[in-house]
């Protein structure tokens, strides 16, 4: 099987400097935030690749670069063998872009409140002057809503129903890859189960590939075929769910798995992890995790670990074995 998406050395730096005048008056230099730093990953066709990480880990930034909402500062993204930033054949790029869709976190902000559901769903097709006759109605039925809902406005729906509408919009242009950015973190548990099941069903039915971006480890375990763990914009570990959850190799993954609350963890006395995520504008030298790492040595403070294969896992840690 060949990789559907190939990401090589992907980086994104944001200029977070204050305005020019403030910089001059306060005698400060420019400030840069490295949101994503040299990430390599492959996504196989018809699989779900999950990116997990806490806030500031760069997981959403990677998703936005993949769909073309942001341009990478470094590295490359190849989808269907087409390098999206270098390819000069516009038609080719447009074709690939059309195969990628996205589902967002906030079901309240991702639907235009002034548009009827029908217009929202068919917009991706209408832009390319495709055939939209009955399309919205068909898609609504497919995501478990009613055809009659097409004439309503978003505010008439609950959060879970809105997320179904978002999924219907994403499906409208018949994509092959859907980037799902925290698709259920704004939803209640029982509704989350409905949406996750729907996503699984649609994946089977349409042969979709998902890039699932989330901070929720339980969702990842349930949905993913392959999991990448991000810390401060760096990919620190990658494995299949069973391997990752049963034998985590990176100290950060171990900490994360240990700290996450469990519904069967009654009165569990966790040894809470130390410290917090460092400032991404001035990340620690060497391994970004070393200030919080229980087993850090000198080399961790000096040299940034490369990601390397280790059994069924890829891990970026000097000491993992």
């Amino acid at each position: 099987m060949t990789a559907y998406v190939t990401v090589k050395g992907l980086s994104r730096v944001f200029d977070v400097s204050k305005p020019w005048l403030n910089r001059v008056l306060e005698r400060r230099g420019k400030a840069f935030l490295t949101a994503v730093s040299e990430v390599d990953l492959d996504i196989e066709e018809r699989t779900t690749y999950a990116l997990v990480g806490e806030s500031g880990s760069g997981k959403s930034t990677i998703g936005r670069m993949l769909v073309g909402l942001l341009r990478p500062t470094g590295g490359e993204v190849e989808v269907e063998g087409v390098n999206l930033d270098r390819e000069t054949d516009r038609a080719k790029v447009a074709k690939v872009r059309g195969d990628i869709q996205m589902i967002f976190q906030d079901p309240y902000a991702s639907l235009n409140p002034r548009w009827r559901v029908r217009d929202i769903i068919v917009e991706p097709v209408a832009v390319k002057s495709g055939d939209t006759e009955g399309l919205a109605e068909r898609l609504l039925e497919q995501v478990g809503l009613h055809a009659a809902d097409a004439g309503k406005f978003p505010h008439e729906f609950s959060g879970g129903q809105r997320q179904r509408i978002c999924i219907a919009r994403a499906l409208a242009s018949e994509p092959r890859l859907i980037v799902c950015d925290e698709p259920t973190s704004a939803l209640d548990v029982s509704v989350q189960a409905q949406v996750l099941n729907l996503m699984s069903d649609l994946k089977e039915e349409f042969g979709l590939t998902y890039l699932l971006i989330t901070h929720d480890l339980t969702v990842v375990r349930h949905m993913a075929d392959r999991i990448g763990v991000l810390y401060l914009g760096r990919l620190v570990e990658e494995a299949d769910p069973t391997t990752l959850f049963e034998t985590p190799k990176h100290p950060y993954t171990q900490m994360l798995l240990n700290a996450a609350p469990r519904i069967d963890g009654f009165g569990r006395e966790v040894d809470p992890p130390q410290g917090e995520i460092p400032d991404p504008i001035n990340p620690p030298p060497g391994c970004a995790f070393h200030p919080r790492c229980p087993i850090a040595r000198d080399i961790c403070r000096q040299e940034r670990p490369r990601i390397r294969p280790l059994g069924a896992t890829r891990v970026a840690c000097h000491l993992a074995e």
């Binding site: 769909v67 996205m102 967002f104 235009n112 832009v127 390319k128």
Partner: peptide, 13 residues
């Protein structure tokens, strides 16, 4: 900043 604008951008509006 709202995501419906991102959604419109990404379909090439």
């Amino acid at each position: 900043r709202k995501e419906y604008v991102a959604a419109a951008r990404l379909i090439g509006r």
